[in-house]
Amino acid sequence: MNWVLVVAGAVVGAPLRYLTDRAVQSRHDSVFPWGTFTVNVVGCLVLGLLTGAAAAGAATSHLQLLLGTGLCGALTTYSTFSYETLRLAEGGARGYAAVNVVASVVTGLGAAFAGVALAEAWWT
């Protein structure tokens, strides 16, 4: 039964990642991978909210599988982040590559911490 929850979350997360990436990237005339950056930061925020909710007893293990493993696992993409960063560096945009790494890590961690703090404020 657990794998069904993971698959169900992924069925929503994967197309959501693709559609969000395309929508965001089409609005920016830049080599910076804004679409991937956006889905990764949003995924960090959702996972932070879910983690905070679980810590407060407001999220079941089934919800964690559905949203955390399934949805966020398919929504976020470390492999694409790595690939796009490598392509930027190889293409001569080393500054963008460095900004992508630093901004993704700092903003992703910030979003996760903010999600936990929001969830704790809401459920405690």
Rank of each mutant, 00 (worst) to 15 (best):
G70P: 07
P15L: 06
A23R: 15
G13S: 04
L5K: 08
V99E: 00
L75G: 01
A23D: 10
A54P: 04
E120T: 15
S26E: 14
N2D: 14
Y83V: 15
G48Y: 01
T20V: 15
R22S: 14
G95C: 09
L66E: 00
A119D: 01
W122E: 10
V24M: 10
L66F: 12
C72G: 04
G115T: 04
V42H: 01
W3L: 15
Y96C: 10
L88A: 05
A58I: 11
L63H: 10
T124V: 14
E90I: 09
Q64H: 14
S61M: 13
A56E: 13
G70H: 03
L75Q: 00
A117H: 10
L45T: 09
L16C: 15
C44P: 06
L86A: 14
G9E: 00
G92F: 07
F32I: 12
T36R: 04
A119M: 02
S79K: 12
L5E: 02
L63C: 10
T85R: 08
G52R: 05
T80L: 02
G73L: 09
T36D: 03
G108D: 00
A111E: 02
Y18V: 15
S26T: 15
W123S: 11
A97Y: 03
L67F: 13
G92V: 10
L75Y: 01
A114Y: 07
V24Y: 04
L19T: 14
G9Q: 05
L63R: 11
A56N: 09
D29M: 09
V31D: 09
H62L: 12
L45D: 03
G52P: 06
L88H: 07
L16W: 05
R27F: 06
G73H: 06
G57N: 08
L65G: 03
V41H: 05
L19W: 15
A58E: 08
L71P: 00
V31P: 12
W3D: 13
S79P: 06
N40R: 11
A53S: 10
A55Q: 13
Y96I: 05
A98R: 14
Y78I: 13
E90A: 14
A14E: 04
E90K: 15
N40A: 04
T107N: 04
N40Q: 09
